[in-house]
């Protein structure tokens, strides 16, 4: 009985876990389903009929595609800047001695512990007080996005770097490599998976952000802001097409990465 009880207990946890996983994944399935919806009216968010029209006319809703393009541009630039700045900081924090280490740790940690609404409002307070109230737009969004991505990059790259043996770099130095060569030939390739993960995380944080962006965007409209506006007026099914495309692209990237790392592991 106890053995059977334990077996059952084990599988109950697994079944509950799978149900929770279902709760996490059902909304994504709804997004995919709704991308084929043929809505009866603007205000109803029910599945009224199957159509391919949304996929064929993605850019029909006014401003939808321009908002996606803005989010892509901001996402790419913010990812680039945050990844470079954050990787440098992570290297300093793991591989170098400096004074004020705890202050630096705190400075990196605090933005992650601040609610978005507070971070967004303080940035807005800064921009307005500095006289940039009329210039809110592309550059203020970019500044904000680099800020909230930066901490996540530092933490991700630090975790990867902390797992690497510094002896590898010392060995390179013993073999007469200078700091530059050591970095590009030894450290960078080893840390690269961490940097890549940090960049992907940054991009998805940036592409997804609404609360901070909405406060600092001025007249610009990013994709999440478009969705927000649409939710007040009637939701065009095309936003679900964009959601589905993003999902498929990201899933493909993750699965390819997984496949690549398995192949590399097999070769070793």
């Amino acid at each position: 009985m106890t053995r059977f009880g334990r077996w059952l207990a084990g599988h109950v946890v697994l079944v509950v876990g799978l149900l929770v996983l279902l709760y996490l994944c059902v909304p994504v399935l709804v997004v995919i389903l709704m991308s084929f919806n043929d809505p009866a009216s603007r205000n109803s968010y029910t599945f009224d009929g199957f159509t391919l029209d949304n996929w064929l006319n993605i850019c029909d809703p006014y401003q939808l595609c321009s908002s996606v393009s803005l989010s892509l541009r901001i996402g790419l630039l913010a990812t680039l800047a945050a990844t470079v700045l954050g990787t440098l900081m992570a290297f300093a924090m793991v591989r170098h001695r400096f004074r004020g280490r705890s202050a630096a740790n705190l400075l990196v940690f605090l933005p992650m512990a601040t609610p978005e609404i507070v971070m967004g409002s303080s940035l807005l307070a800064l921009f307005v007080n500095a006289g940039f109230a009329a210039q809110l737009g592309f550059w203020t969004i970019l500044v904000a996005h680099v800020l909230f991505c930066l901490s996540f990059v530092v933490v991700t790259v630090k975790a990867r770097l902390a797992g690497l043996d510094p002896a590898l770099e010392q060995a390179a130095a013993d073999l007469y490599a200078n700091e530059w060569q050591t970095f590009w030939r030894v450290s960078f390739p080893l840390v690269f998976p961490g940097i890549l993960a940090a960049a992907l995380l940054s991009f998805s944080l940036s592409f997804d952000d609404f609360i901070i962006t909405n406060l600092n965007a001025g007249q610009e409209v990013t994709f999440p802001m478009f969705v927000w506006g649409a939710a007040q007026r009637g939701i065009p099914p095309q936003i679900n097409v964009i959601g589905t495309i993003m999902f498929v692209l990201a899933l493909t990237a993750v699965l390819l990465g997984e496949l690549g790392s398995r192949r590399r592991a097999a070769r070793r």
């Binding site: 909304p27 994504v28 997004v31 968010y45 997804d208 936003i239 679900n240 959601g243």
Partner: peptide
């Protein structure tokens, strides 16, 4: 996986 698609679009579902 839910992170792969937009926060707002998911919330709308």
């Amino acid at each position: 996986a839910p992170f792969f698609t937009s926060f707002l679009v998911r919330t709308l579902s």
